[in-house]
Amino acid sequence: MSNWSSLAEKVLTGGDCSNEEAMSILNCPDEELLLLLDGAYQIRRHYYGNKVKLNMIINTKSGLCPEDCGYCSQSVRSSAPIEKYRMMEKDQIVEAAEKAYSLGAGTYCIVASGRGPSKKEIETVVSAVEEIKGKYPMRICACLGLLKSEQADQLKAAGVDRYNHNINTSKSYHEVITTTHTYDDRTETVGRVKDSGMSPCSGVIIGMGETKEDVVMMAKSLRELDADSIPVNFLHAIPGTILENAEPLTPAYCLKVLSLFRFINPSKEIRISGGREVNLRSLQPLGLYAANSIFLGNYLTTEGQATTADHKMIEEMGFVVETAQEQAPVNR
């Protein structure tokens, strides 16, 4: 039996997980799962207490994407029957922010499909963010694809606190998932975000056929990138996408993955993201012992559980929603 509490103490005193220790987390016997989660919770409690951050997404532009990402229903390679539309108007984005704030979301995530934003799309987002910031004490996260330095500076100046651009998988597995951009394209965008002064958000999608070694490398790569927020998505295999027949994950394995990311990135916001309902299933509440953040409501083209169920889950587990006012500024 591994001593997960001792490993947690090692991490809390500044030690790093070795590759061997990281693999032992993913290979943890199911009968030790609660002990592993207890170790992860020691770290989570040290940095975040019993608080849970809530995030909400708005999909401001759907489909019409020229990229060939195998997991994505919005890809040019996908035949999934999703709604497709051009960039929303500013007023629609602002109106959705009001709803997010009313539901307790401390971070509002403005997302658009595509390789990267056009000049007009940047201008729309900038205008919407300036109005939202004048009305609601919320963090704003943008996720608009590959970003140029001047675009990052524009978003920062408008008041965007955080920019999301996921690495999605390991560098060695990246070409299996997409060929229309490189892994380095993604990490360079994260670098531009950091240079602008916005907080970098970058995460992964688990369940795309990668090895456990790949998962360890993802967690360690995000530590090297110094991502402040790490969304951990679990593949929701959508009919019509390249990965529609991917093998499903077990809830126990998903909990081990969340624990791994907490042990390797102890002080960072670990967010249970897309696919949590279909992969963690009835074990969703246990994920909060490792993660300190979740998305409320629906995702980009898939539905989440009701926001009332999320609030109830948090309350019944003895956790407390962190209000927007309590959240510290994230600009670097």
Rank of each mutant, 00 (worst) to 15 (best):
48 Y>F: 15
48 Y>A: 13
48 Y>H: 15
49 G>T: 09
49 G>M: 09
49 G>K: 14
50 N>L: 07
50 N>G: 07
51 K>Q: 12
51 K>L: 11
51 K>C: 00
51 K>T: 11
51 K>E: 10
52 V>L: 12
52 V>E: 03
52 V>R: 12
53 K>Y: 05
54 L>E: 06
56 M>L: 15
56 M>K: 14
57 I>E: 02
57 I>A: 05
57 I>N: 13
58 I>Q: 06
59 N>P: 05
60 T>S: 15
60 T>W: 01
60 T>Q: 04
61 K>A: 04
63 G>K: 12
63 G>S: 06
63 G>M: 11
63 G>Y: 10
64 L>C: 03
65 C>M: 11
66 P>A: 07
66 P>R: 08
66 P>G: 04
67 E>D: 13
68 D>L: 10
68 D>M: 05
69 C>D: 04
69 C>V: 09
70 G>S: 12
71 Y>G: 04
71 Y>A: 08
72 C>Q: 07
72 C>F: 10
74 Q>W: 06
74 Q>G: 01
75 S>D: 03
76 V>R: 15
78 S>F: 09
78 S>C: 03
79 S>P: 06
79 S>V: 13
79 S>E: 12
79 S>N: 13
80 A>M: 06
80 A>D: 04
81 P>D: 11
81 P>L: 03
81 P>H: 07
82 I>Y: 08
83 E>G: 02
83 E>C: 09
83 E>K: 15
84 K>S: 01
84 K>Y: 00
85 Y>Q: 05
85 Y>V: 10
86 R>T: 12
87 M>L: 14
89 E>G: 14
89 E>S: 09
89 E>I: 08
90 K>N: 00
90 K>S: 06
90 K>H: 00
93 I>M: 05
93 I>E: 01
94 V>M: 07
95 E>H: 09
95 E>K: 15
95 E>G: 04
96 A>N: 14
97 A>F: 06
97 A>D: 02
97 A>M: 01
98 E>F: 05
99 K>R: 14
100 A>G: 13
101 Y>A: 14
102 S>W: 04
102 S>H: 07
103 L>G: 00
106 G>P: 02
106 G>Q: 06
107 T>M: 14
107 T>P: 00
108 Y>C: 10
108 Y>N: 08
108 Y>G: 08
109 C>N: 12
110 I>T: 00
110 I>Q: 00
110 I>M: 04
111 V>S: 10
111 V>C: 12
111 V>W: 02
